[in-house]
Write a protein that binds this DNA or RNA. Structure first.
Lengths: 334, 334
DNA sequence: TTGTACGCGTTATCAG
DNA sequence: CTGATAACGCGTACAA
């Protein structure tokens, strides 16, 4: 039912080599035999075995993607971006959700190595030394997406620090002085991880001489629920709170939802601005202002430079995508 | 840098065969050689070549997933469900978004065939004869997810017809008599496709002797925006409209968003119930009532029966998952 | 222009 | 218990 190159060769009265050459457009055969072979291929509905090809070519036409268990919109954006450019070139994508069901990054790297993927996209993951060394060992090109690292691996990312700064500045320029932030990060990470969005927020406040303390920021667990508890924390801790910057739109959505439940009006009582500018923003009540960082564009860029490296030997440069405020109805001037 | 079984064998002074046996726990070797070989494997950080394995075993430990370009929450749910059970067993997942960037299903099937995936999950896709025949030709197990077909391929799906019926009945029992529906389907499909959610809606109305016309249903394009235009259509066409059933929660979200913009209060002016019960429902304003059809559970079920068939030779049965109304604050009694 | 023969890394069959 | 050796399906020097 599933034929091999040998079957085709036999049926066309040529050798496997000839069929192979025709299959790969290598030239060195007459039009006549080409036609004959192609006819047989059609007749048999011959489909070359990619596994065998992979073995000889040392190339599987497959890339591996590592994404943490992010909230849905981001993941979808990222995967859509990656798949759209990969599939256009006939490259398959193996997706691995890390931190899901307790399966760890290194285990996935081993799996992807075993599958002999041609390249790696690592999204929103803190690249630990261990991972880096394993990637080196795998000896395939890799690119970081929405993150960067101390190691010499190219990255495509947004400028989170400055984007957060811009969001905060936007609130300040609208006249807000008592501003809180809801972060999705866990508080204990403050110690050993660099949190660019948190730092950008702090820096904007201090640049504009707005005093603030640790209470101005609440931390969470990367879930929409963070928005609700974050909102509660902030209104309790900051007496004259008028504005909130949320680390992500999903958390912003949580804040909107929490406000609805608590009877707080947005933006009359409190203004809110998010980050990422996911598609949902425009459908929230009220539509959520945000800082645009196109994750699908970043994903496309990351994929195209990775494929360029793998299949054309091009150099991989770093890219930092631009960002800008998208104003909707969740922030008011005071 | 990347060693082969031959390197391991040489270094351990045994034959490739012995290494292979130890690698696969086949027995037939002394503890002593086993230890020696394992030591060498560790030392060399040997990682078996899955491509070569795939060639001899005729098994790639990879399954292919076809998903249409659905809205984000659904896709994420489905992929999470599939990956969680697949990865648990060390199976990789190649994801193909159909109807995206104009790449068609059949092309993906060919690609997955070339990759020699061990099985197929086809989600939310109308299985055309052409696809069915190709799958037959591929000669791998396949399962349909969130859909079913006239062909003998097992499916895991929700009972969309009855779930839609239940949602409509829920509105009726709350006292609503002027009920509209916003469908995501395109109107022209009415002619040649069976739309279970639309039919369930109609049937509930007629069972309860509620008269309705074609104006009670508006169609769309599977986007959140459908909700807004659908809402506008319905309030224009149906004078005393008090409730809306939306074909999906995403569309429900669009209705909520549209209502906010039009100054319509939910549920005071109009009640809304959605379908799918996606995670976002609880964070909408107001939280959206819905009919729960767990897409992640369906995906898990589909995956586990597929893997059961592939790797244990188990039979594949059809499954229809249960559904129930999840009441939140978007529907009121009248 | 075409064919032969070998190698890719692994597993399986047979001998020993 | 262990080791040659032949497959798996394809690409490619090399030869004709």
């Amino acid at each position: 039912m599933t034929y091999t190159i040998k079957d085709v060769a036999k049926r066309a009265n040529v050798s496997k080599a000839t069929v192979s050459r025709i299959l790969n457009n290598q030239g060195g055969y007459s039009e006549k035999t080409k036609k004959k072979v192609l006819d047989v291929i059609q007749e048999l509905e011959y489909n070359p075995n990619g596994v065998a090809r992979g073995l000889t070519n040392k190339r599987t036409n497959t890339i591996g993607v590592l994404v943490p268990n992010l909230t849905s919109s981001l993941v979808t954006d990222v995967l859509n971006g990656i798949e759209s450019v990969a599939h256009e070139k006939g490259i398959s994508v193996i997706v691995c959700h890390t931190e899901y069901h307790g399966i760890k990054t290194l285990k996935y790297l081993r799996l992807l190595h075993e599958k002999r993927v041609d390249g790696l996209i690592i999204a929103s993951t803190n690249l630990e030394k261990e991972y880096y060394e394993y990637i080196l060992k795998m000896d395939v090109p890799a690119v970081l997406l929405s993150t960067y690292s101390e190691f010499p691996i190219p990255y495509v990312t947004a400028d989170d620090y400055n984007a957060a700064y811009m969001a905060t500045e936007f609130l300040i320029q609208k006249g807000h002085k008592n501003i809180g932030m809801v972060s999705g990060n866990k508080e204990e990470w403050l110690a050993d991880k660099y949190l660019p969005r948190v730092e950008g927020f702090k820096r904007a406040l201090s640049d504009y001489k707005i005093s603030f303390g640790e209470n101005n920021i609440t931390y969470g667990n990367f879930s929409i629920e963070d928005g609700l508890v974050g909102l509660e924390n902030l209104v309790r801790e900051i007496p004259d709170l008028t504005a909130i910057f949320t680390e992500s739109d999903e958390i912003g959505m949580g804040v909107l939802s929490g406000a609805y439940k608590l009877g707080i009006n947005i933006p009359e009582d409190i203004s809110v601005i998010g980050m990422d500018n996911i598609n949902l923003c425009q459908f929230l009540c009220p539509p959520l202002s945000s800082v645009s960082l196109s994750h699908s564009k970043m994903a496309e860029k990351a994929t195209s430079i990775l494929l360029g490296k793998i299949y054309s030997g091009l150099a991989m440069d770093n890219y930092i995508l631009e960002h800008y405020v998208v104003e909707r109805q969740s922030v008011r001037s005071i």
